[in-house]
Computed example of a mutant assay.
Amino acid sequence: MTNSDLWDEQAAQGYDRTSAEMFAPHVLTPTVEFLAQLAGTGPALEFAIGTGRVAIPLSAKGIPVSGIDLSQPMVDQLRRKVPLAEDLPVVVGDMATATVPGRFSLVYVVFNSIGNLRTQDEQVECFRNAARHLSPGGRFVVELWVPGIRRFPPGQSAVPFEVTDRHVGFDTYDMVTQQGTSHHYRRRDNGSASYGASNFRYIWPAECDLMARLAGLELERRVADWDGSPFTSDSEKHVSVWRKPFGRNLDADGDAVPLTSTDNSDDGAE
């Protein structure tokens, strides 16, 4: 059983509107181009596919894309855009354990969504699940912010990430448990305000690398953003790429095992 928050019908219906900045061309185009280059001819699998913000334009490039998402209402919103399941198949389930038939050249999870898994065990299993789905040589990509706790003065437990006349957002952190909550206050057109919150577990880049190693993956590249800018000590986010080595496969428990001459785990991927 996952500890993730579940996007309900109301939240799903408003997701594209409240996340409109993530659909902007200057944000979305570099994301899709980066992933398309890694996927090659595909296929690709998106964890936490949501309403299809990234998957739909990636699919439009001719790359077969499948998805996993915990929320049926979010998938319903995706289906309004791509009505036929065969055009963009999605499994409703937990990205730490749910499976999709076949093997993939690329598995990816974007927009901090891996933090929705709120225990370390679940996050480790997410890496292992990605590795199970990858063909040898395939990549797992994670987009994730660097926790903002270094901004804290003594005694502070919250840090703002956006303050505008339409939206005030801040994160609160528990530095013992690595649990956090994102708080959103939005001003409606009629002058009233709404409040929403989502919970997460934050992960440092080095912890991600250890999770990847436990899954049999090797760090290939880490950059500060989809434009390939260098990752430094001042970077507020990272896009990390881990690769599944050739000659390595994972059994049903997620443990690395050698490939044999009869193994067909790379069928269906270039």
Rank of each mutant, 00 (worst) to 15 (best):
S105Y: 00
S192C: 05
R128G: 07
T177E: 13
F152Q: 15
L144R: 02
Q123P: 06
H184F: 13
G155L: 09
G115L: 06
G180L: 08
P136S: 03
F111D: 05
G115E: 08
P153A: 14
F170L: 13
P154H: 15
Q178L: 07
V107E: 00
T177D: 12
G169P: 10
C126D: 06
G137K: 01
Q120H: 12
S192V: 09
F127T: 04
Q156H: 12
F152Y: 15
S105W: 00
N116D: 09
Q120S: 13
D165Q: 15
P153F: 13
M175P: 12
N116R: 05
V142N: 02
S105N: 02
R186N: 04
H183K: 10
H183T: 14
H133Q: 07
G137E: 01
R187I: 03
N116H: 10
V109D: 02
V146F: 07
G115K: 03
V163S: 11
M175N: 15
S113A: 13
F170V: 13
P136G: 01
Q156W: 11
N116A: 09
F104W: 01
R139V: 03
R166A: 15
I149M: 07
F111T: 03
P136D: 01
F104N: 02
M175L: 13
G180D: 05
T177P: 08
S192T: 15
C126I: 11
F140M: 00
